[in-house]
Design a protein around this nucleic acid. Structure first.
Length: 591
RNA sequence: GGGGUCGUGGUGUAGCGGUUCAACACGCCAGCCUGUCACGCUGGAGACCGCGGGUUCAAAUCCCGUCGAUCCCGCCA
């Protein structure tokens, strides 16, 4: 059986007169008097069938029984449409197929939603019937993009001398970082595998094994709460190099990104990407993943209000609070009194004092400031008449993040209007090695446990102020999304042990949990570094989709549930028995 | 773990104390239509308004609880 001689979407007027066999799904049916128009769809596109039962009497019955999404095989002749019947909206709009025979390969029940209208349907229903939704090119297109990303990446890294090597998914649970998905071991009572959160340790072992350039497009598993840009399983472009440096890694990644943009979009990316230190990013953008399409900047205006009598600002500043402002140019950000009040109210709710200043013709309306001081402030903010200034007075720990959120929400409209399809990369550098964990009252790794400290910082501060140590690591940010992170790794066991000690690991705990790694470092480990790029996030941003679920073929919902196959699900008593797992209480979560 | 929003025929929504309140669009079924292209026209079927309780003479509508969905914070690269 020949199912098709041509694909629906490829037919043009140059095919006029050809005998063709097509197979596909019924996209629409339009019955007009004695003739029936059927749009037949396959992956390549849509072609219009013309079925005239008066010419082929045997078609009459079969046409009467056709429904949307039935699967057909048809034979017919390509004919050019007359001038007035051409549909310029369709790529195949100059022709149609005069049908001679129809065979229904498969019939479709009434569908839960229309393929071409699924964007208005509840997402969980679409996910349950993902195989229907995927028939819509708008839904399937991101998967082709992702395919291109993977192919380009493999080619690029292969050309750079990388080997693609697989690492285990069933691995050892490690402390720190995200919660693990655990897999009980049948052969070892009470013992568990953990699904890998990332191939971090394995890739280090590979370079220690003399494989100087490794990469992998790898699945990662993390059992945390999910968001638009977080799924329980996701993919990373993961790589590691021996004898490398931060500049070399950056060059490599910039090369990958520019190759991707060149190959897929025919866009020349401006290189190198701008570099912003972590400290600078927080102070200017209120986040470590700034969207550089957004022109707004946070300005520290504390100094202009820091004099006795400048009530109430002065008193709060003396208590170590900071005063931060964002200038909103009237040319780009129209602003109503009501919006302003709403914003201020949302800040008060977060425990910050907030202010909205309007720049009038005669200047910013802030009475406590001298004219000279006020003018200096206006210059600092580049503020002009009609502009607004939003300002927050709060402890630094909350002020910057509040302003960061404000900057994001204010910038949204601007980006949507002016910058929607532009791509702004940035490197974020000089991250602190540790961050303080309030709950556990100890330091934890801000990147991961094996990140190389800046050795000068380390020598100076590791005994007294570990939080002043910067790490040899960096992030890649694209349009406000953290695309990936990486850096240099510790390759000396003494340093690794000392870092783990600072984070509160006893030597016994280190030997038990990381003994194999420290031992490996003692058998001749090369200096090394690497990076990991979130493949799904990259695809999401490039496809300009709002959710990771749009670029994962069979994603889970926000509670980690798949409606298509029904996991997580209960398992049989026998399976539990084999694993020697007993539940104290009958679980009632789902069937 | 916390907060916001939502839950009405197959799908998307309207109704937000009573009276043509169970409606509208798409889809579905039947009929008509020989150039449609989101075809059109006529008619029809289809919902105990997520679930449980309460207030009331009266609840889709108000209240409480619960379940589910979703977004955000916490958490997480």
């Amino acid at each position: 059986m020949i199912y098709r001689s041509h694909k629906c979407g490829e037919l043009r007027s140059t095919d006029n007169g050809k005998e063709v066999t097509l197979s596909g799904w019924i996209h629409r049916i339009r019955e007009v008097g004695g003739v029936t128009f059927v749009l037949l769809r396959d992956q390549s596109g849509i072609a219009q069938l013309l079925i005239d039962a008066s010419l082929h009497a045997d078609l009459h019955d079969i046409v009467a029984g056709l429904h949307h999404e039935d699967v057909l095989r048809v034979e017919g002749v390509v004919v050019k449409r007359t001038e007035k019947d051409i549909n310029p909206q369709m790529p195949t709009g100059e022709i149609e197929i005069q049908v001679k025979s129809i065979e229904k390969l498969s019939s479709a029940k009434n569908l839960p939603f229309n393929v071409h209208r699924s964007n208005e349907v509840d997402e969980n229903l679409r996910l349950k019937y993902r195989y229907i939704d995927l028939r819509n090119p708008e839904v399937s297109q991101p998967f082709f993009l992702k395919h291109q990303l993977m192919q380009t990446t493999r080619n690029y890294l292969t050309n750079e001398g990388f080997w693609e090597i697989e690492t285990p998914y069933l691995a050892k649970s490690t402390p720190e970082g995200a919660r693990d998905f655990l897999v009980p071991s049948r052969l070892h009572d009470g013992h568990f595998y953990a699904l890998t959160q990332s191939p971090q340790i394995f890739k280090q072992l590979l370079t220690m094994g003399g494989i100087e350039r490794y990469f992998q497009i790898c699945r990662c598993f993390r059992d945390e709460d999910f968001r638009l840009d977080r799924q329980p399983e996701f993919s990373q472009i993961d790589f590691e190099c021996a004898f490398t440096s931060l500049p070399e890694l950056k060059t490599l990644i910039q090369g990958l990104m520019s190759t991707i943009f060149k190959n897929i979009f025919d866009i020349e990316l401006p290189l190198p990407f701008p570099e912003i230190t972590y400290e600078h990013a927080i102070k200017q953008y209120g986040t470590d993943k700034p969207d550089l399409r957004n022109p707004l900047k946070i300005v520290d205006i504390t100094e202009y209000f820091n004099f006795p009598g400048c009530t109430p600002f002065y008193e709060k500043i003396q208590e170590n609070e900071v005063f931060l402002g964002i200038s909103l140019p009237a040319s780009d950000f129209s602003f109503s009194r009501k919006q302003g009040d709403e914003l201020l109210a949302s800040f008060q709710a977060e425990g910050a004092r907030s202010y909205l200043f309007k720049h009038k013709e005669e200047g910013l309306g802030i009475k406590v400031l001298s004219e000279e001081n006020r003018k200096a402030l206006e210059a600092r903010l580049s503020s002009k008449p009609q502009d607004h200034i939003i300002a927050v007075l709060a402890p630094a720990s909350i002020a910057y993040s509040l302003m960061g959120k404000l900057r994001n929400s204010l910038g949204k409209v601007f980006i949507e209007k002016e910058q929607k399809s532009t791509f702004q990369f940035a490197w974020i550098t000089d991250f602190p090695l540790f961050e303080w964990n309030e709950e556990e009252n100890r330091y934890q790794a801000s990147h991961h446990l094996f990140t190389q400290p800046n050795m000068e910082d380390y020598q100076q501060w590791h005994k007294t102020d570990p939080d002043k140590i910067r790490s040899e690591s960096f992030d890649l940010v694209l349009n406000g999304f953290e695309l990936g992170s990486g850096g240099l790794r510790i390759f000396q066991s003494e340093v690794q042990r000392s870092i783990l000690n600072i984070m509160g690991f006893s030597n016994e705990a280190i030997d038990e949990q990381f003994g194999f790694l420290l031992e490996a470092m003692d058998y001749g480990a090369p200096p090394e570094g690497g990076f990991a790029i979130g493949l799904d996030r990259l695809a999401m941003v490039l496809a300009q989709k709002p959710s990771l679920r749009d670029v994962i073929a069979f994603p889970k919902n926000t509670r980690g549930v798949s409606y298509i196959t029904g996991e997580p699900s209960k398992v049989s008593d026998q399976q539990l028995k084999d694993l020697k797992i007993h539940f104290k209480k009958e679980s009632t979560c789902n069937e």
